[in-house]
Design a protein around this nucleic acid. Structure first.
Lengths: 212, 212
DNA sequence: ATATTCGGTGAACATTCGTACACTGAAAGC
DNA sequence: GCTTTCAGTGTACGAATGTTCACCGAATAT
């Protein structure tokens, strides 16, 4: 087995590299015209392989789409996991959430753009998968929120509703960031400020509404 | 000219009828796989004409898409125009807004679904047009809101922000309604109630936030 | 050293696509 | 009545698509 554990020369590593090339190609190309109107041949052309080689990695374009959904939401999951570890979050969840959101979305524009775009694309498998992942994300965020000082004694139903509102706004803001031109820190700050206000609005209004 | 002024026999009327058939065909077919991956030939097949006849009405699929955007937003404009005339709106804008929203969206599902789906489709002309129309809608709604008792002395900037929040939530709720299964009055009521709460949340939170 | 596995190749196919072109026939204009 | 206009037809073409199949050659297994 020659045990050459240096650079990726083994069969597995090479295959994984090509697989990733296909994923990258699909992600980049889908930015222009959407994943739905993406042809298998275009993807393989961009990935630098021959059309038929595609089938060595995915059985269909649908399967490719699902892999992209999974990869995109791994980014999201990493975000919430990091946020849970960050003590700053407990001090001022709203301010830091806005910062984190803008930073993470900017660093993973392609993935967020993919989710935003394909969330309502066809009635295909991809859309269904995104919907499911978003639901999971709402539940995850609800767990985090429930441990916050001002929220800890709310009913789980209420927490879930607020979490849902947060996620909805997060998606909406992510969409704005994705479409933001490059090198416009003023716009970025504006979006960040808007996000902060909206979140503050939600918790403030909700606390107020509950007390009546 | 046989002057048969019963059904539409004139040249103009017949042309308009075919044009509408194309629009209807595109609207229906785009429900399944999105407007982007819709071929000219599929549309004409569904409309009952030969492919080349398409060009008698639209120069390209893009132009067809723009016509669909216009038709869809005419529905929205009618909604806000009716709402302005309805005295009930001034009594309780939130409750009636939720009712109106659910009713109008249900009656024009195809159009709302089209907008929701294509809002993030390609980076094409259609998406740009939708974005523009939505901006216009925010401004229109801001005018209506500015005349409400509790809001009339807010700065126009603040009114615009609240209007933007309302529209964003409206779009989001419309998306939910569009995806709602038929004959589920319980779900419908749930969405309506959620919309009401969210709107109440926004105005309450915003008023509270302004006073600090 | 030899045999096997398997990621990638290249030619071939039946379909579908957008669009150009010449046409038809009935409504519209005179 | 005759002519013109023009929405819709039918054929035809090159280009692109998804998928098949036999094949290659280097990394693996024996």
């Amino acid at each position: 087995m020659t045990s050459d554990d240096g650079a990726g020369q083994t069969r597995q590593e090479q295959k994984e590299r090509t697989r990733q090339a296909i994923l990258d190609a699909a992600l980049e190309l889908s930015q222009d015209h959407g994943f739905g109107q993406l042809s298998l041949r275009q993807v393989t052309r961009q990935a630098g392989i021959v059309p038929t080689a595609f089938y060595r990695h995915f059985a269909s374009m649908d399967e490719l789409g699902l892999a992209l959904v999974e990869q995109s939401f791994n980014t999201l999951r990493r975000m919430i996991r990091d946020a849970q570890r960050d003590p700053q979050v407990f001090v001022s969840i709203i301010d830091s959430a806005a910062d984190v959101l803008v930073r993470v979305v900017k660093d993973n524009k392609a993935h967020f753009a993919f989710v935003a775009r394909e969330r309502f694309s066809g009635q295909g498998v991809v859309r269904q998968a995104i919907r499911h992942e978003l639901d999971l994300f709402v539940s995850d965020l609800a767990v985090v929120l429930a441990r916050l000082p001002n929220i800890e004694n709310w009913s789980s139903e209420d927490v879930h509703m607020v979490s849902s509102l947060f996620v909805r706004n997060m998606v909406s803001n992510a969409e704005q960031i994705v479409e933001m031109p490059e090198n416009r820190p003023d716009l970025e700050e504006q979006i960040k400020d808007g996000a902060r206000r909206q979140m503050r609005l939600i918790v403030l209004g909700f606390a107020n509404w509950k007390s009546t």
